[in-house]
Amino acid sequence: MNTQTQMNYIDSAKRVIEIETQAIANLSERLNDDFITACDILFACQGKVVVCGMGKSGHIGNKIAATLASTGTPAFFMHPGEANHGDLGMLGKGDVLLAISNSGETNELVNLLPVVKRLGIPVVAMTNSASSSLGQHADVILDISVEKEACSLGLAPTTSTTATLVMGDALAVALLDQKGFTSDDFALSHPGGSLGRKLLLKVRDIMLTGSDIPLIELNASVADALLEISKKGLGMTGVLDTDGTLTGVFTDGDLRRILDARIDVHSATVESVMTKGGKTTTAEQLAVEALNLMETHKISALMVTDNEHKPVGAFNMHMLLKAGVL
């Protein structure tokens, strides 16, 4: 491939990005009372927001519906072609129709409007023509018009679909902010995703408990502590005071320090070489918060204690990684 061909690729890409960037900037300048009205209608919706569009508008509509649904506004996509053959039954009292058509004259969509209006369902239209059939049937119109498509032929929907997608995102986020939708709410609607795991998973969900917790008595030898570390596989062990509370931890790092000091692991007690106190967490703390604690203090494992500072669990970075928190 010659240099001129490579430059042509870059020039084409830059032209597309510049055209679409300008179109989005123009879209921002056209936000007005119609956008507020559309948000009010969607916010007041007692049922579902039913997004409808044909062709490329349908693909964008599908994504808008998914974004609305994941950010606190119940929504789904209805294909206008299927709706004309029975799927219109998806619409019911309390719903809102978010209809997308660049021209406003898409036959499959326009054919639905008389029935939709007869059902008393509000219509929020996203179109470039207020005078179109869709525009005339709509309760409010969101102007998604663009000066030109980024396609060099001026034919393939490019800039127009980008503008539509951005307008859909603007609606979804405006509603999210108004509803006070939180990260916990987002996690509940994404329990299988990595973000959901980070936001929902607690330390109690991943920690070792019972006899799997690495623990050693205060007067035990360093050699005994090493056996416990090896047996439990967390790279550390908790050290118990005589009343069963956690008084410190003995880690791989402590071991390296005593080896450098040439201390006899058989004669030395763990009390004399352990890290006193040590960082701990609780079972109810979010796993991602525990991870932040570990990263801040550059430690690879944590003991979990109760209100009386007695150990109830333990975990390490590998367990966080396995749980999808990292």
Results as ranks from 00 to 15, higher is better:
V124K: 07
K148A: 15
L119W: 14
V115A: 15
E149L: 06
A125W: 00
S145E: 08
T127A: 09
V124E: 08
S152H: 15
V123N: 10
H137C: 14
G154L: 10
C151G: 05
L134Y: 00
D143H: 01
V124Y: 07
I144D: 02
G154D: 06
E149W: 03
A125I: 02
V146G: 01
A130W: 04
L153E: 07
T127D: 08
C151W: 05
Q136Y: 07
S129F: 14
Q136A: 13
S132A: 03
D139K: 03
C151I: 05
A125S: 00
S145Y: 06
Q136C: 15
L142H: 02
S129Y: 15
A125F: 00
D139W: 03
E149C: 06
L153D: 04
A138R: 05
A130M: 11
V115N: 11
E147G: 14
G154N: 06
V124S: 07
K148G: 13
I121P: 05
S145F: 05
C151D: 12
V123Q: 08
S152V: 15
P122W: 03
L142N: 02
L134P: 01
L119E: 10
S129W: 12
V146S: 00
E149R: 05
I141Q: 01
V146F: 00
D139G: 10
T127H: 09
L142C: 05
E147Y: 03
L134N: 02
D139L: 04
A130R: 13
S132Q: 00
N128T: 10
E147K: 12
D143G: 02
I121S: 05
K117P: 03
G135M: 07
S132E: 00
G120Y: 10
T127V: 11
S145L: 05
S152L: 15
R118G: 13
V123P: 09
V146L: 01
E147R: 09
R118L: 15
K148C: 15
D139N: 12
I144L: 09
M126H: 07
I121A: 07
S145D: 08
K148W: 11
E147V: 10
V124C: 11
V140D: 10
A138D: 07
S132K: 01
V140W: 10
I121T: 09
L153R: 04
C151T: 05
K117D: 05
H137Q: 15
V140C: 12
R118H: 14
V146W: 00
D143P: 01
A138Y: 05
A125Y: 01
E149T: 03
L142P: 03
G135W: 06
L134S: 00
S152R: 13
I144T: 15
A150G: 08
E147P: 03
I141P: 00
V124P: 06
S131W: 02
V140K: 08
S133G: 06
D143M: 01
L155R: 04
L134K: 02
I144A: 12
A150W: 03
L142A: 04
K117F: 08
P122M: 04
S132C: 01
K117L: 11
V140S: 12
E147D: 13
N128C: 13
Q136P: 07
H137P: 10
V115E: 13
L155F: 09
N128A: 14
I144F: 04
S131Q: 11
